[in-house]
Design a protein around this nucleic acid. Sequence first.
RNA 1: GGCCGGGUGGCAGAGUGGCUAUGCAGCGGACUGCAAAUCCGCGUACGUCGGUUCAAUUCCGGCCUCGGCCUCCA
Length: 462
Amino acid sequence: MPLVLYNTLTRAKEAFEPLVPGHVGMYVCGPTVYDRAHIGNARPVIVFDVLYRLLRTLYPSVRYVRNITDVDDKINQRAKDSGEPIAAITERTTRMFHEDMAALNCLPPDVEPRATAHVAQMIAMIETLIAKGHAYAAEGHVLFAVASMSDYGRLSRRSQDEMIAGARVEVAPYKRDAGDFVLWKPSTDDLPGWDSPWGRGRPGWHIECSAMSLQHLGQTFDIHGGGQDLVFPHHENEIAQSTCANGAPFARVWLHNGWLMVEGEKMSKSLGNFFTVRDLLDQAADEKQGGEAIRLAMLSTHYHQPFDWTADGLRQAKATLDRLYTALRGVAGIDSNGYHQVPIDVLAALEDDINTPLAISHLHELATALNKAAGLEDKARHKGALLASGHLLGVLFQDPEAWFKAAPAGGLADAEIEAMIAARAEARKARNFAEADRIRAALLEQGVALEDGAGGTSWKRG
RNA sequence: GGCCGGGUGGCAGAGUGGCUAUGCAGCGGACUGCAAAUCCGCGUACGUCGGUUCAAUUCCGGCCUCGGCCUCCA
């Protein structure tokens, strides 16, 4: 089965073929590092992490580039407000971003370029654009001339007339066209700046991705991803810059994940429904369990759809993982190493435009099959299939015991629980069921549930 | 106003021109000292009005409705 992806450029699902057989280049817009990642930031990272994992199983060589935007007016503003130096803010925020995404079990990209390390390349690209008549300098700024590009607006499917009609901000007087956008802008002494042919200044927002994708993936590459909100203007402008400067096609397939809502409303600080990844991780029994549940919750809706983040959705994701880990816990002693293979239906679901909800439904079916499996061979086979499938989605990496025993601060220690279970076992042996039930109820009160099985009593928190 | 994406059973959420999505919740049964977990069974959903078709939730059109984007928010 071929990998099929929905390409925003053509608004259609297309069979994916790498430009160079066996080699895939993917660029995804990364964070602007001025604050903790919120759950909306996490969605593209998780979605494209699944794609990255899938690509790595399908192709021998994948180069995944995700940038760090460390020069930006929001960062400047943050520094001005807090007094913390810019470099300290970006360094600290980058570190926190890495921690949070690791907690969500997202693999690091192969290359993580920082904008400030590519200013020379940006300046070179801007010079090329000017030389080719696609950009002009005016009052210390350099602007891209949208009129110089015949099919500007192709990605977002809007004509320049529409954009002018819809413009809701004041058009700077030095712009030739209302739609012209900034490639370079002047910096005052208190702002970060680099020497350039147009004086000391800093890059506009879009040029960094054009410069960094060229540096790390070349002129034409396979996949470019990001949030749907970036279609216009960011990605439209990247296309304009790169195709005009390079004289070559840019990204071949454009992927965009849908917007994230919270409890049916747009997430915003003023509505009080603004969560960072860290907030949610801190609310979980432990970081690994929380991260895995957040990740599965995110993947329970197709990436292209709007995602409604809800407390109930997170609870359901946790319940799903409980079920899957329950199945795995039952076969903990069975070696499945020889059977670590992703079943065809799971692979087919993901190859069909990353249909993670369908893939998850197959995980459920695998768990049912595993629960029903009688022979050793059957159990090993289903266990291997479930684990391999989970790993492709980036879940089920934990030891089931660790999953169920994830302990929040406070509460009963493992040893205390074990002692109570031992006491209950004595009571049961003596057929003192009243006492046995009392102990079980007492544990449940503390959030510990018992399950009597053939091989003894197991327990879990939460 | 322009462009785009949705409206599926109590809930979440896939998908399909005729055949069970899946899970959670609910109900019944098996198992259990009782539970829990697990397994089995059940409940026959596709905004609305038309059209195409032997057949539409699935294609086409109108309408209603929700949401997003329209110069720097992933």
